[in-house]
Amino acid sequence: MNDNDKKKKREAKAYEKYVKNFTPKPHYTMNILKAFIVGGSLCTAAMYVQNVLTETGVSKEMAGNYVTVGIVMLAQLLTGLGLFDSIGKFAGAGVIVPISGFANAMVSTAIEYKKEGPVLGVGGKMFTVAGPVLVCGISASAVIGIIYWVIGVTG
């Protein structure tokens, strides 16, 4: 990086700082509180359903799967009905960070490109946001698996 680039960067930093004086700030406390309450409630509701299912004789693992699948399906349906964006506007990370956010990301990108066709439009765009999540998550799990395998073989 030469001196000119450095100077530009410094100026950019200074301007960013200057602009901050005029930029409205997000309502940190309120937003965090909303995310905490909505996210917490969603998890608690999921726990309750899971407990009811285990009581009726479903295995603990499958009960967990049913709950996950249920949240995913509900979130995707709400996205299709055009309600999820309003909920997200209120709750923020409270619905984005739970698995519902992942489900919403798939459908919201897919229906946006509906007019581009059911295969390349809907099918292709479904993964614009969800794709990176799957790619990074699955790759991380593979790396972890390999590390554990190496430890298992050598240790």
């Binding site: 937003n31 965090i32 998890c43 990370a93 409270g94």
Partner: peptide, 11 residues
Amino acid sequence: IGGAICAIGQL
């Protein structure tokens, strides 16, 4: 715990 994870995301 669930609420806290979401709150971190919001932050």
